[in-house]
Design a protein around this nucleic acid. Structure first.
Length: 296
DNA sequence: AGCTTCGCCTGCTTGC
DNA sequence: TGCAAGCAGGCGAAGC
């Protein structure tokens, strides 16, 4: 049951982490026989074509920022990287040799339609053992990048991961900047992995207003980072936030939505002080804030 | 250079 | 009831 219905929801760090783990369990060790990508506009600039993956074996799958990183090894034992960003509505569907389809991320319609959305099925991997993996993305905000592992983060404009970042580094990133702290935290060049939901939740929990200038928020870098990590870790434990269009790898629902305290709760009473949660726009994104708990 | 706005894209919701 | 407009947002490009 959904406690609220906020409009479009995207896979963020915890959801991507969950999907990556599911993919690692599912496709690691399999050899790619053929790959097709029907929507060439999904290639990120500088990417190799999908044929480059043919004959590669998937070694492991992990998260990089808000994207999924496939570690591939070619027949000549060369390491290759495939990065798939799910954008807003991207998901994977895995079909085994017996024809059963299993959804690896996202759609409220659930198992009944898993794999049935062929209209938006842009990518298709066929493995040597007959299993298949599909990439489905109705809004096509996702991307594919194929290339070398070296310098991947720089190539993809990804700053350090929030779990690797040190408080001092965050202080330096925020310091001397006039932009709202929320806009800075969402900037993937500066920090890669934080998205709209979790930034709102983190700033609420740490009591910092999203519009606080970076230079002012810099003094709170430690608590902000600590809080963001705690929120993300909890969400990963709950396998992400299931809203309208997210479904975790085993087909079950993520459970973090019941833990959201401000996101999507505009008009409701703050759980701490009963003040009405406000919605504003910061950095072009819908932003939820308790004006009392997060004074500006 | 830093910061903001826009456009991409589609499906769902809202309003007339 | 039906249709158009509005909205959601990650990210890159363009604009200030």
């Amino acid at each position: 049951m959904l406690l609220f219905d906020p409009g479009g929801i995207v896979p963020e760090l915890p959801e991507v982490e969950t999907v990556a783990r599911g993919l690692d369990d599912t496709v690691a060790g399999r050899e790619i026989a053929t790959v097709t990508l029907k929507a060439p506009d999904l290639y990120r600039r500088g990417s190799r074509r999908v044929a480059w993956m043919r004959g590669c074996t998937v070694r492991r799958v992990e998260r990089i920022g808000k994207a999924i990183l496939f570690h591939l090894v070619s027949e000549a034992q060369h390491e290759r990287a495939l990065v798939v960003h799910l954008g807003m509505t991207g998901r994977f569907v895995f079909a085994d040799t017996r024809g059963g389809a299993r959804e690896l991320s996202g759609d409220a319609n659930g198992d009944a339609t898993a794999g049935a959305d062929t209209r938006h099925r842009h990518g298709r991997w066929r493995f040597r053992d007959g299993a298949e993996l599909y990439y489905v993305d109705p809004r096509r905000f996702g991307y594919f990048y194929l290339g070398a592992h070296e310098g991947l983060r720089a190539t993809l404009n990804m700053g350090p991961d929030p779990f690797e970042l040190r408080p001092r580094e965050l202080q330096r990133i925020l310091g001397g900047r006039s932009a709202p702290v929320k806009a800075l935290l969402l900037n993937q060049r500066l920090i890669s992995g934080l998205g709209n939901i979790y930034v709102d939740e983190s700033l609420y929990r740490v009591g910092v207003h999203p519009l606080t200038p970076g230079s002012v928020a810099a003094s709170n870098a430690g608590p902000i980072l600590q809080t963001a990590r705690r929120v993300l870790r909890r969400a990963i434990r709950w396998r992400g936030t299931t809203l309208r269009d997210y479904r975790s790898p085993d087909g079950g629902s993520g459970g973090f939505q019941t833990r959201l305290m401000v996101y999507g709760r505009d008009g409701e009473a703050c759980q701490r002080c009963a003040t009405t949660i406000e919605k504003l726009v910061v950095g072009g994104r819908g932003t939820h804030v308790c004006p009392v708990c997060q004074p500006l």
